[in-house]
């Protein structure tokens, strides 16, 4: 079953189709599982990858999340989207992995996060300075706390509302709003001086505004 349509590989799945697949996946139907994985894997991976910036970790967490989701499908609440359930599990695993990593290494290696490779195909029009600002934006996102980072990624990239994010982070909606607020404040504090140093800041912002 080919559901890969968008850049994410995640064509939005019809609700009833999703429930039908979940029912079949409960009975360990391989094709249903395949369809659910294909429909969600890239979106989930994009999120987890941005949380870790490590392909191996991100892939492992996604595998883990899918297997846990499938293993516990009996307790899946059909009032929710399968993606919400999946992201909730993945976020838990992500947090645990970050904690364990920190316990092993002593502290997070933020420098690793700075090695974002610009995508030539999508960057050709942007000036060097715009690319630098973009790079700085990601470095700043990486400096947010995990919950703030997750909130920003889910809100902007995954286009989720605060309610759904609250479900995934297993936290009150008010906390999500606070994460978003603090994240923006921190991004502003980190990026404002960078932009100030650049000449033609308005033009640069215009380039990145899309």
């Amino acid at each position: 079953m080919d559901v890969k349509k968008s850049q994410d590989g995640t064509a939005p799945m019809d609700r009833s189709e999703e429930l039908r697949l979940v029912q079949k996946a409960k009975r360990r139907d391989a094709e249903a599982m395949r369809a659910l994985i294909d429909a969600h894997k890239q979106r989930l991976f994009a999120f987890v990858w941005r949380m870790h910036r490590n392909h191996h970790d991100a892939e492992e967490i996604c595998q883990d999340a899918f297997l846990k989701a499938f293993a516990a499908l009996d307790s899946f609440n059909p009032d929710y989207r399968f993606s919400t359930w999946l992201f909730t599990i993945a976020y838990r695993v992500t947090l645990n992995t970050l904690r364990k990593k920190r316990a092993v290494s002593g502290e997070m290696d933020w420098t690793r996060c700075a090695s974002s490779e610009p995508d030539a195909e999508h960057e050709y029009a942007a000036s060097e300075e715009a690319n630098r600002l973009k790079e700085m934006i990601w470095q700043s996102v990486d400096k947010l706390s995990p919950a703030q980072r997750a909130t920003v990624l889910l809100f902007y990239k995954q286009q989720m509302g605060c309610q759904e994010i609250a479900t995934i982070l297993e936290t009150p909606v008010a906390t999500v709003k606070s994460h978003l607020h603090r994240a923006r404040a921190k991004l502003k504090d980190l990026l404002s001086p960078v932009l100030e140093e650049m000449s033609g800041s308005q033009r640069i912002l215009g380039e990145l505004a899309g």
Binding site: Q7, D8, G9, M33, R34, I37, D38, K41, Q42, F45, A46, W49, R50, H55, A58, E59, C62, Q63, F66, L67, S116, E117, P118, D119, H122, L133, K134, I137, W138, S140, V141, V152, L153, Y156, K157, Q159, R184, L187, K188, L191, S192, L195, L205, L208, A209, G210
Partner: peptide, 26 residues
Amino acid sequence: LLEVAGHVVASDNEAPLLDDEFTSRL
């Protein structure tokens, strides 16, 4: 700046693609 930051995150497509092998293994 904040609007642009949001836009940059929203239009992010730098994550590597997961192949069919990932699905099959799972």
